[in-house]
Simulated scan of single mutants.
Amino acid sequence: MSPATITVVGSINADLMITVDRHPLPGETVPGSGGTISPGGKGANQAVAAALLGADVRMVGAVGEDAYAEPATTYLRRVGVDLAHVHAVEGPTGLAVVTVDAHGENAIIVIAGANAAVDAAAVEAAREVIASSAVVVLQGEIPRDGIEAAARSARGRLVVNLAPAVAVDPEVLRRADPLVVNEHEATYAYALLAPGAESPDPRDAAGQDALVEAIHAAGVASVVMTVGADGAVLTDGSGLRRVPSPRVEVVDSTGAGDAFVGALATGLAAGLDLDDAAAHAARVGAYACTGPGAQPSYPTELDQLPS
């Protein structure tokens, strides 16, 4: 097993980027600009972020047989991600319509497209690649049975980013080390892990701490909850800790969470402990907010990172 090998099993999208002064209300039309296509998808974003930081990355996923397949994989190819297990299938490539307002806040509509083909059968075909990886990274933009098959095949460290929040076998979450979630995803994850139990409210620091501890107590080896500009809260059984995020001028937060996950996986694959890996990931995620788009905004040099 190579100690630096990461396999990302997940989504590959083309992102249609639109800029507006403010997001429209229901039934409202507002003027916008942009209309450019850039590569995206949570899986691809995390793979690119890790590869840019020096990791040896392999991707398991799918694109469609359409014009969006090439731009969707541009950065994956450029940064040297192994795409031997990314297959073209009938139908469209996954598409995300990303609208960013003047404050850098985004609203995103995701169309699964070819990502729906990354099911259990597709993942089983890559079982040996997954099993031989030091770190396996999963998200929620492929079918449930694909996520569960990848978790079963993983023999190295499993990083599960339950984003978006989707129903999976709770044992997938219990195998995560760590489970990476934001406040909303954490609440959903706890509901899967402890059905019927009252969840702590993560709208303040005390509630965030309580929720992370509750998820850990429900059988998850380690938990990292991102809390936006405030960084992250984490535990691995040796106490609750907070990792601050550098303060930056936000241009576009699209893909910042994926940059965090990719950097976290890279740190863990390189042998960092959870605290140091999360601190590094917070710097990478903050940097990703300083430029437009997802993959194009990721750091290419460590000295670019804010402190």
Score class of each variant (00 low, 15 high):
4 A>L: 14
12 I>L: 02
13 N>D: 01
14 A>M: 01
15 D>I: 02
17 M>E: 06
18 I>Y: 00
20 V>R: 03
20 V>A: 06
21 D>I: 03
23 H>W: 11
23 H>K: 11
27 G>D: 00
30 V>G: 03
33 S>R: 15
34 G>E: 01
35 G>W: 12
36 T>R: 15
40 G>L: 07
43 G>E: 02
47 A>I: 04
52 L>V: 13
53 L>R: 14
55 A>F: 07
56 D>T: 15
57 V>M: 11
59 M>N: 05
60 V>R: 03
66 D>R: 02
73 T>H: 03
74 T>N: 06
75 Y>G: 02
79 V>N: 02
80 G>P: 03
80 G>L: 05
84 A>F: 00
84 A>N: 10
86 V>F: 01
88 A>M: 03
94 G>K: 02
98 V>H: 07
100 V>K: 07
103 H>P: 00
105 E>L: 06
105 E>I: 01
107 A>I: 00
111 I>V: 15
115 N>W: 05
118 V>Y: 00
121 A>M: 07
129 V>Y: 01
133 S>T: 07
138 L>G: 05
138 L>A: 10
139 Q>E: 11
142 I>Y: 00
148 E>H: 01
149 A>G: 00
153 S>W: 05
156 G>S: 12
157 R>K: 15
157 R>L: 15
158 L>T: 08
166 V>P: 09
176 A>I: 04
179 L>W: 05
181 V>G: 01
184 H>T: 11
190 Y>S: 04
191 A>L: 08
193 L>E: 07
195 P>F: 14
196 G>L: 13
198 E>H: 10
208 Q>Y: 03
211 L>P: 10
218 A>P: 13
219 G>Q: 14
220 V>Y: 13
221 A>F: 01
222 S>E: 04
224 V>R: 05
226 T>M: 10
227 V>P: 06
228 G>F: 11
228 G>W: 11
229 A>N: 10
237 G>Q: 11
238 S>W: 10
242 R>S: 13
244 P>T: 12
246 P>G: 09
249 E>V: 10
253 S>G: 15
253 S>Q: 14
256 A>M: 09
256 A>P: 04
256 A>F: 11
263 A>E: 06
263 A>M: 09
264 L>F: 13
264 L>P: 08
265 A>F: 13
266 T>E: 08
267 G>Y: 10
268 L>E: 03
270 A>K: 13
275 D>T: 15
281 A>L: 07
288 A>E: 13
291 G>P: 00
299 P>K: 08
